[in-house]
Write a protein that binds this DNA or RNA. Structure first.
Lengths: 132, 132
DNA sequence: TCAAACCATCACATTGATGTGAAGGTCAAA
DNA sequence: TTTGACCTTCACATCAATGTGATGGTTTGA
């Protein structure tokens, strides 16, 4: 598919698809006229990239971890230098921290919302009992 | 405590502590000479802010959700306008998405690391059997 | 009392992710 | 064959988070 379709299907501005390419996150083919042409699988890949960006990872890191997330992965064992492994372990730990932080705060929001809701219910109840 | 100590205890540059204040995330007192003075509790608060920033939330959103994460929270019910509730529900959902994305990818990294390790083990084993 | 180590404000720079638009090539349909 | 909807590259702009440094006031200890 061409860039327009990928853009529509992933909800990503064309500008950013080119940017991700520039950052080495995706590598489209080119057809004879110079147009980029994207493999079907890049739809998921782009959404994965967007999710990771939204979760605070910079493209530099995403580029490093992306190749390790594919199966079959035997192909990528060559990347597994000790430095790379250390990087991955470090990023995994940072992601775990992020998950903890997000979970904690999300749960607090949920709790707050529950409290507000039950508060409103009792408001409504007492109002009903005084106005009727 | 003053800004230097808070900076040390949270690992946060002074510049950023002032920035967070400018964004309305923390509100230090001032002593007579104009120096900022921070409550003990702001240590945790700053680390919470940093965690959320690192997890991809912008200060604008952090500012909105922070007041709802405190207990006792009865004080903050006044903030609970319908728009605020909608915002919170929306942010909660986005956080859930982030958590899912991070978890999925972190688990994939873990899986990759496990695969690499077992691969290295079998390398070592076969090398041992051929060289000894 | 003077130096060192704090603090203040202000301002300009940078970086990463994005927005926007110009100038021009390609292609399909009227 | 021309129009409109694609595509290309290039460049400049913006925004949030952060770095850095200038300039100057305050406090503390030798």
């Amino acid at each position: 598919m061409r860039i327009g379709e990928l853009s529509e299907r992933t909800g990503t501005p064309r500008r950013l698809l080119r940017y991700y390419e520039e950052q080495g996150l995706i590598i489209p083919d080119r057809c004879a006229n110079g147009y980029r042409t994207y493999d079907e699988r890049l739809v998921d890949r782009v959404m994965q990239i967007r999710g990771l960006l939204d979760a605070g990872l910079p493209t530099r890191i995403i580029k490093q971890i992306l190749p390790c997330l594919d199966k079959p992965r035997a192909i990528h064992f060559s990347d597994a230098t000790p430095e790379m492994i250390a990087t991955l372990e470090n990023e995994r730990d940072r992601m775990t921290e992020r998950i903890k932080c997000l979970t904690r705060n999300r749960d607090a929001i949920t709790e707050y919302l529950d409290a507000v809701r039950s508060n409103n219910r009792s408001d409504a109840a007492s109002e009903a009992s005084t106005t009727s």
